[in-house]
Amino acid sequence: MAEVALRQVVKKYGDVEAVRSIDLDIPNNEFVVLVGPSGCGKSTTLRMIAGLEEITSGDISIGGEIVNDLPPKDRDIAMVFQNYALYPHMTSFENMAFGLKLRKFSKAEIKQRVEHAARILDISELLERRPKALSGGQRQRVAMGRAIVRNPKVFLFDEPLSNLDAKLRVQMRTEIKRVHQKVKTTTVYVTHDQVEAMTLADRVVVMNNGIIEQIGPPQELYHKPRTRFVAGFIGSPAMNFIPCTIEAHGDGLRVRVSDTIALPVPAARAAPYRSAVGKEMTFGLRPEHITEPRPGNGAGNGNGDTDFAAVLDVVEPMGMETMVFFTINGTEVCGRVEPTAAGEAGTSMRLHANMDHMHLIDPATGLVL
């Protein structure tokens, strides 16, 4: 078994607390992604698991064994770095085999392991090439192969796709997911790219300012964020946040976002929101839930009060959809509409808010109600 557990782990650099008493359990064979902005503590956490950073306090265990005092070579982990870290004078085969040679594996065993990894990564024809003769994606595959041949308890990835261009990143993202499906090994992956986190992870760990904001499957974090930070960080374009007031309206509630726009709260959401009546709150709604009125989305079906008019500030055609930007009470808002639905910038457009997907956030605590 190769479960990884962190208990009350703290990392300080002098008076600066980079990681603040985090707890994390990673079951055997799970692919966990640590994601967050620069300086949030995600890479520091990965390096502490690897043994490249000493922990200030707390415990880290791998496979049930506390490894606080074990050097990296004795933790049975394999790490893939952002910069590949390949030896330029060695062939791909020699780079992948190097760690096994140091551990005195037989030539036959080394050959078998390297060729097996090369087949998984589809680089069998590249084994005799040196790094300078490889593309960025091919070098990253060799670096992954070097980790796979070790057959470690845990794979650690430290922003491995950061040096690749956008198209190659997408290809390698798919490759990494495919490899994990074949080589079921516990994996901890660090990235600042929330799209990578969403597409790769079994579970995502969102970090901010040295703490864990939320842990969960990608879809849970996307649809049920617990804090404003998670709601804004997960999703591209980001969730819209609009200052609002909750007001009673007959037997129900409304979200007042401007003098002219008050959107009805769905009946199923009314009970937990009643305590917020009369308070200044933050209304959250993702761009894909602000569209042109469409048959079946409530417009013309007794729910037309979820429609509103806005003057478009910017229109961005994207091919399969168009992004529209407008302002509500001084706050910029983004919507996603059908390609032919939007007019030109400066024109008024009728829009529809899907309130079934609304979020209400307490601005004082940053918590989602």
Rank of each mutant, 00 (worst) to 15 (best):
M1T: 15
A2G: 08
E30K: 03
P37M: 09
K42C: 07
I49T: 07
I49Q: 07
V67R: 09
S92R: 05
S92G: 14
E94H: 07
G99N: 00
K104F: 11
K107L: 13
L121H: 03
D122W: 02
S124L: 03
E125S: 14
E128T: 08
R130W: 00
G137E: 08
Q138S: 11
M144C: 11
R150G: 01
P152M: 01
V154Q: 04
D158V: 02
S162Y: 02
D165L: 09
A166F: 10
L168W: 12
R169M: 03
H180K: 03
T185D: 00
V190Y: 00
E196L: 03
L200V: 05
A201S: 11
N208W: 03
N208V: 12
I211T: 15
E213Y: 15
K224L: 14
C244N: 05
I246H: 05
H249Y: 11
G252N: 06
T260N: 13
I261W: 12
P266Y: 01
A268Q: 02
G278T: 11
E280R: 02
L285N: 02
E288C: 10
G296Y: 05
N297K: 11
D305E: 14
V337F: 01
E338P: 00
T340C: 02
T340D: 12
A345G: 04
D356K: 14
M358T: 11
T365G: 10
